Amino acid sequence: MTTLPTAAPTRPASRPAPTSGPFAGAVAAEWTKLWSVRSTWWALLAAALTMAATAAQLAIYAVNANTDDDPTVAPGVVPVGHIVTGSLELTQYVVLALGLFAITSEYATGTIRTTLRCTPSRGRVLLAKAVVVGAVTFLVGLLLGGVGAAVAGPVLGEWGRAPLGGTLTDLVASAGYLALVAVLALGLAAALRGAVLTLTVLFALLMIVPLSLQEPAITVLTRIADAFPGVAGNHFLAGDTEPYPAVVGLLLLAGWAAAALALGRWALARRDS
């Protein structure tokens, strides 16, 4: 009896080694999620319209002040970049929605469970969201700065100037400010979970509390207000030297954003999704 030769066992095909680590995968997932929802596109459109309208309004104010009969209110020739940075006081509340909704929308729909199941490390999830939100809002800030400059320049006319170096510096500073404010919003949203509550706290931190402290014109209270994120960011944008250099304002704002992320990380680790 002849025995048939047995075939050699086949080895399973080896899988290719992964080309990216888990953090890169988390960033890619957050990038996809951010651009796949309509709220992102609506927020971008609303931010562009708000920037254009605010820049036009501030430019009109500057022209009217210079052409008014009262010489004491004439600001003179105004840099276009200053109009852009001034327009952020209102525009920022639209842009920070990108950071806020990056996590509150997942809590509202329950998809945060899927996110944490795919990426069990909650710190990695929040850091990936921060990287994506910061990068996107920085690029959006550059775009919005261009929109504001394009609108303000023609409206200012002879009362405006746009030196290339100074204007680019203002645009980059505006983009950096918006990126840090959006990351601040993300961190608070991770801790508070609700969009309305987070927006209320942000409004208080960026405007209401500092204004309340500054109103009595008491030095101690004013110095406390200078440490709040909105005031610190304004000192940075204006390039102030008092009450501290502009770079200190940037560092204070970055510190608030980092503290908000730390608070969000702490809340994520201690509560169920």
Rank of each mutant, 00 (worst) to 15 (best):
V140R: 00
L144P: 02
G146E: 05
G146K: 01
G148M: 07
A149C: 11
A149H: 08
A149Q: 08
L156F: 04
W159K: 04
R161N: 14
A162C: 08
P163K: 08
L164K: 05
G166R: 05
T167V: 07
T167E: 13
T167M: 11
T167Y: 03
L168S: 06
V172D: 09
A173F: 11
A173V: 12
S174Y: 01
G176E: 02
Y177H: 10
Y177D: 07
L178I: 12
V181E: 06
G187A: 05
L188H: 10
A190T: 08
R193E: 05
R193I: 02
G194E: 13
T200Y: 11
V201E: 02
L202E: 05
L206N: 10
L206V: 14
L206A: 11
V209E: 08
V209G: 09
L211G: 15
S212D: 11
Q214A: 12
A217Q: 13
I218Y: 00
T222S: 14
R223H: 13
R223P: 03
I224A: 13
I224H: 06
D226Q: 07
D226W: 05
A227K: 06
A227R: 11
F228I: 04
F228H: 04
G230F: 01
G230C: 04
V231K: 10
V231W: 03
G233I: 01
F236D: 06
L237M: 10
A238K: 13
G239A: 08
P245C: 06
A246N: 02
